[in-house]
Design a protein around this nucleic acid. Sequence first.
DNA 1: TACCCGTGGCA
DNA 2: TTGCCAAGGGT
Length: 360
Amino acid sequence: MNADEFGQRVLEWFDAHGRKHLPWQQNPTLYRVWVSEIMLQQTQVVTVVPYYRRFVERFPSIRTLAEADLDEVLSLWAGLGYYARARNLHRAAGILRDRHGGEMPLDIALVQALPGVGRSTAGAILALSTGQRQPVLDGNIKRLLSRFAAVPGWPGQASVLARLWTLAECYTPTERVADYTQAMMDLGALVCAPRRPDCRLCPLAMGCVAHAQNREMDFPGAKPRRDLPVRATRMVMVRLATREILLERRPPVGVWGGLWSFPECPLEADVVDWCQERLGLRVAIQPLWKSLRHTFSHFHLDITPVPVIAEAECAKAVLEGERFVWYKSDDVQRLGMAVPVRLLLTALTDDLLNYEDRNE
DNA sequence: TACCCGTGGCA
DNA sequence: TTGCCAAGGGT
């Protein structure tokens, strides 16, 4: 099947079955498509939609995003995961304001130079928004092309990736590039699905090498797996008599970067001493609960909650600031707490306060 | 190159 | 319960 026929079949399928009512497909400006592409990195459409709506309503333009506080950007991102995306998006908006007149450039090299924008995202922004002929190679298209051409190997491998990019370039048409790009992602998501590809619905089945060999599930090649490492940490839940609980802003990099959580006490430290030296608080430790395991895609995190009661009345004056905050449970969303942390906080805080109630 | 970075759905 | 996967990019 040559490239012309490939594109023709994909576009015919799109006209009949493609997705045309996603929020970012309405008024698909460079800004709106950019935000959507960042949110959609490693994240499914159904998850993104509500976040996207809230985000573009609050930040309808590059300039409003650039002028916003990172805290507010993170708070709208809380629950989506991969928070570096939000930090990069905010930083890129500032770059566009300062160096590009507040506009997204049309030169793919400049787009790709923005933090958080790689080759595929840059291509998608320009192709979907302006119809510029740029190849895209997201997870859907990788899978579709891997099967169509029976490309062996795991796409994380550089040589395999290079071959897929060559195929993506080759098949990208010169007309209707936006529809074609959307169609390829839709085909990958809806027809050439990871687990149960439905080749009866596929406009490319007659040219698909994997299908001809009945080996659809052999492509793309599997990622080499290794055991997830286990990390351990200790989260100190400092409570005041007023039932307020101490949160600390996490470092800008690393897990839940820039979000708020319980202060983490090093495992080797003594909790009481650590609270005295680090927080300036005299505390009494309450009974220890069992640790809980939070599993990420790439490691296990064993968290030991350590509830303590702080005695110092001067605590608020000492700690109030950019780095620490005393909160009552309603403030969590405002602070930009990641969902698992919020659930963690809610559950643990409830337990903590119940414990207090039981002992009053 | 090999990690690092989240969360929800699914079998 | 567990592992796998999803519109990737940064370091």
